[in-house]
Design a protein around this nucleic acid. Structure first.
Lengths: 154, 154
DNA sequence: CTTATATCTACTAAATTAGTCGTTAATGAA
DNA sequence: TTCATTAACGACTAATTTAGTAGATATAAG
């Protein structure tokens, strides 16, 4: 259910590129430092994001990375899906990552998983980098004081 | 973002116990066969579910496993959370599995992740085994014909 | 006392995750 | 042209997690 560090790092990095969108390119070194990401690992991540056209780069003295598209034209869903393969909780309710499961005709919980996939996909695909960037960081009070269903954790 | 096989197997098995709730105990062999789960692996899973009080067992010739509590008193959230540790997409928005992240004060996407966690937790914690069992299995047509946001996969 | 079941403890093979490392190529400035 | 600084490329690896296996013991019914 959890995102990998790679996805987390990708999001951290791209949001600092959002911050400097339209300005000068930011070198990996700086992206790594600001977001506490191992530099050589970030290199791979940025390369993938470049292949997908979200980012571009310039070598040389004043080189670095820039956001290649308007942040209102890139969704969270695209990025997370690229690094995680699937948003769905199980493959049998995934469209892009669908894999047949022998239990499909009798599985009781498949419908719930489909519903979960649907709300998550809707939220992720409906949210652009620009929209996320406009929001303020959430505080820990908000995280922990949230109205939880049945008092359960998480 | 995806459930492990262990969680999947746990859910498969517990739903056949729901099916026989109030009747005679079902042996592992039978649970494994019906749900296509490796028997020795299922053994471990059932033991964990027994420790949590969802299931009990009888050894001996007519032994096997039974659901120990009413299926309307067990939620999907409890089970998934037990086997996955967290429902949240990242630790920093998890209550039970919270881990501090150095980026918290500046992280832009933490709020979206909190919202995702919230809807998933609400769905999972608000759904009992009994409620899931009442529903019919979903068809592949329903899975693939779903109204997708922006035409994106999954 | 036999047979069929659960229980306990440990081990392991495969896959995935989270990186590292060495080298080359491009660019701008001196 | 040469130097410093950056990205790009390809391979390698260590640690962790996942998905199991295996062998032996305990319990109950007939």
């Amino acid at each position: 259910m959890k995102l990998s560090m790679k996805t987390d790092y990708a999001l951290r990095a791209i949001f600092t590129l959002v911050e400097f969108y339209g300005e000068k390119p930011i070198p990996i070194r700086e992206l790594a430092r600001r977001n506490e990401i191992p530099k050589r690992f970030l290199e791979q991540i940025l390369l993938q994001m470049k292949e997908r056209g979200w980012v571009d780069s310039l070598p040389g003295k004043v080189g670095g990375y820039r956001l290649a598209r308007d942040p209102s034209k890139i969704t969270m869903g695209e990025i997370v899906r690229h690094f995680e393969e699937v948003l769905a909780p199980i493959h049998c309710v995934s469209v892009a990552g669908y894999k047949r499961c022998s239990q499909e005709p009798v599985c009781r919980f498949r419908r719930l998983m489909l519903n979960v996939r649907h709300v998550v996909a809707t939220m992720m695909d409906g949210t652009t980098l620009a929209a996320v960037y406009k929001g303020l960081p959430v505080t820990n009070e908000e995280v922990f004081s949230e109205p939880l269903v049945e008092g359960a954790g998480i």
